[in-house]
């Protein structure tokens, strides 16, 4: 976290934008193929969607509780056993809804962006 008020506000706004949104990319990743938590992290980081890794674990636990994902324990050669996450049927339903509303959001936000860029 930065110390100056100016950059702090931007960080805050960015994190506000990510709030409640992270489930969607996580479901997309797990929906593609069963994934280990560290690999989910890697993909999210590459896509610039996640700042701190600690956030993922409460999120995964919440999605597990909502039956959107399930996991199995996999032995690891070097280190602790890992959780392999897979998407459930309900997870797929939720994902379909999220995708739909994302497309709608994307269209309307893009329209607004275009309008803004034309104005300047």
């Amino acid at each position: 976290m930065s110390d100056t008020t100016h950059s702090f506000n931007i960080e805050n706004a960015k994190s506000q934008m990510r709030k409640g949104f992270l489930e969607f990319p996580v479901l997309l990743i797990i929906g593609t193929s069963p994934t280990y938590a560290p690999d989910i992290l890697k993909q999210l980081k590459e896509a610039n969607l996640l700042v701190v890794e600690g956030t993922l674990y409460p999120l995964l636990s919440r999605m597990k509780r909502a039956d959107l994902v399930s996991y199995t324990w996999e032995e690891s050669k070097s280190g602790p056993p890992r959780k392999m996450y897979t998407i459930t049927k309900e997870g797929k339903d939720v994902l379909a809804h999220l995708e739909e509303s994302w497309r709608a959001l994307d269209t309307s936000v893009n329209t607004l962006i275009k309008q803004y860029e034309k104005g300047n």
Binding site: K19, V52, G54, P58
Partner: peptide, 11 residues
């Protein structure tokens, strides 16, 4: 991993 305060920012 991020500090607990950072978790709160994302959670």
């Amino acid at each position: 991993m991020g500090t607990p305060d950072d978790f709160a920012g994302e959670e």
